[in-house]
Amino acid sequence: MSAFFPAGAAVAVSLSFDDARESQLHGVRILDEHGIRASFYVLPSGIAAAPDRWSSVASAGHEIGNHTTTHPCSANYEFSRTNALEDRTLDEIAADIDRAGQVIEDLLGVRPKTFAYPCGQSFVGRGSRRQSYVPLVAHRFMAGRGYGGETGNMPDVCDLAHLDAYVIDGLDVDALMSLVDSGTARGEWVIMAGHDIGDQAPQTVRARDLEEFCRRLARDDRVWVAPVVEVAEQVLATRAH
């Protein structure tokens, strides 16, 4: 058991989903049916398409997090070629993040406390001008979630401003459970990052696998399932003692 988790829990699990995709509004019922609250890292354009429904997601106890306004990623991704991190400055990325926070607050009445790095990338600039924007996130948020990680987070030593997260798109329920089992063995905080919820590939957590995964999590007392912000709050409080 870990001193960082509620009594009896050996592992913390945070489910998260990016971009405020429409399929998430249908898939959230699976989480609700099993009493599982997740973190949704939203884009303003996504919530603006259905603000009332996203307000309902927030009201149900799910976390609404910041994922920037324009989703800038490396120029190596064709979709981001005209919005490349290599061509941005720290001031520009800060403004992008702050705009997103303001829109989220205006539309949903929620001020995000955690952030998810688009594409898991946390830099701006090129070569000798390349800089990390992790400090900007650390200044604004309780935690920053990465993407494409290969491990869980050790709550006593992890950097809350840049947490590792497994990509779970396309994983079946047994693969999802193996991540939890590995985290249980080490006393980790396991963060999972997905996109669509349903049946379409490639960036999809299949509904049937998510449903069975939630069923297994809900009946295992060793697993503490909570949004990223809630676990981050617990980690900070425990470290302070």
Rank of each mutant, 00 (worst) to 15 (best):
residue 199 D to K: 11
residue 120 G to T: 10
residue 73 C to Y: 03
residue 215 R to W: 02
residue 211 E to F: 04
residue 42 V to P: 01
residue 230 E to G: 04
residue 194 G to T: 04
residue 181 D to W: 08
residue 226 A to R: 13
residue 111 R to S: 13
residue 163 L to T: 04
residue 33 E to T: 07
residue 111 R to N: 05
residue 232 A to E: 11
residue 71 H to S: 04
residue 232 A to S: 12
residue 126 R to F: 04
residue 110 V to R: 01
residue 119 C to H: 04
residue 1 M to R: 11
residue 189 W to E: 05
residue 178 S to I: 06
residue 66 N to E: 01
residue 126 R to I: 03
residue 109 G to Y: 03
residue 214 C to N: 07
residue 70 T to D: 06
residue 31 L to K: 03
residue 102 Q to A: 15
residue 78 E to D: 13
residue 178 S to C: 06
residue 33 E to Q: 12
residue 169 D to N: 13
residue 191 I to R: 00
residue 195 H to K: 10
residue 173 V to N: 05
residue 141 F to G: 02
residue 147 Y to F: 09
residue 55 S to H: 09
residue 15 L to V: 00
residue 116 A to Q: 04
residue 227 P to S: 01
residue 101 G to A: 10
residue 128 S to F: 06
residue 14 S to F: 02
residue 34 H to E: 09
residue 103 V to A: 04
residue 13 V to N: 00
residue 69 T to F: 12
residue 46 G to V: 10
residue 14 S to Q: 10
residue 18 D to S: 08
residue 202 P to Y: 15
residue 96 D to E: 08
residue 75 A to K: 14
residue 46 G to P: 10
residue 24 Q to F: 05
residue 183 G to T: 01
residue 23 S to H: 04
residue 160 L to G: 08
residue 70 T to K: 00
residue 217 L to P: 01
residue 84 A to T: 04
residue 159 D to K: 03
residue 145 R to M: 03
residue 140 R to Q: 06
residue 57 V to H: 03
residue 103 V to T: 14
residue 85 L to S: 08
residue 76 N to F: 07
residue 41 Y to I: 12
residue 189 W to L: 15
residue 118 P to R: 05
residue 205 V to W: 11
residue 202 P to N: 14
residue 81 R to N: 01
residue 212 E to I: 12
residue 193 A to F: 02
residue 200 Q to M: 13
residue 96 D to V: 10
residue 65 G to T: 02
residue 210 L to A: 10
residue 91 D to W: 06
residue 69 T to Q: 12
residue 165 A to F: 00
residue 53 R to M: 04
residue 170 G to F: 03
residue 178 S to P: 12
residue 229 V to G: 03
residue 155 P to W: 11
residue 95 A to T: 14
residue 3 A to N: 14
residue 144 G to Y: 08
residue 230 E to S: 11
residue 111 R to T: 14
residue 22 E to G: 13
residue 107 L to K: 09
residue 203 Q to K: 10
residue 94 A to C: 07
residue 38 A to V: 00
residue 90 L to S: 12
residue 3 A to R: 14
residue 157 V to A: 14
residue 87 D to T: 07
residue 14 S to E: 09
residue 37 R to L: 09
residue 97 I to R: 11
residue 219 R to A: 13
residue 214 C to L: 05
residue 191 I to E: 00
residue 64 I to H: 02
residue 77 Y to R: 08
residue 4 F to M: 09
residue 112 P to A: 00
residue 234 Q to S: 15
residue 191 I to L: 09
residue 113 K to P: 03
residue 155 P to I: 12
residue 203 Q to P: 08
residue 104 I to Y: 06
residue 116 A to Y: 02
residue 99 R to T: 14
residue 105 E to D: 15
residue 48 A to H: 05
residue 188 E to M: 08
residue 193 A to L: 06
residue 185 A to G: 06
residue 217 L to V: 05
residue 209 D to N: 12
residue 108 L to R: 00
residue 78 E to R: 12
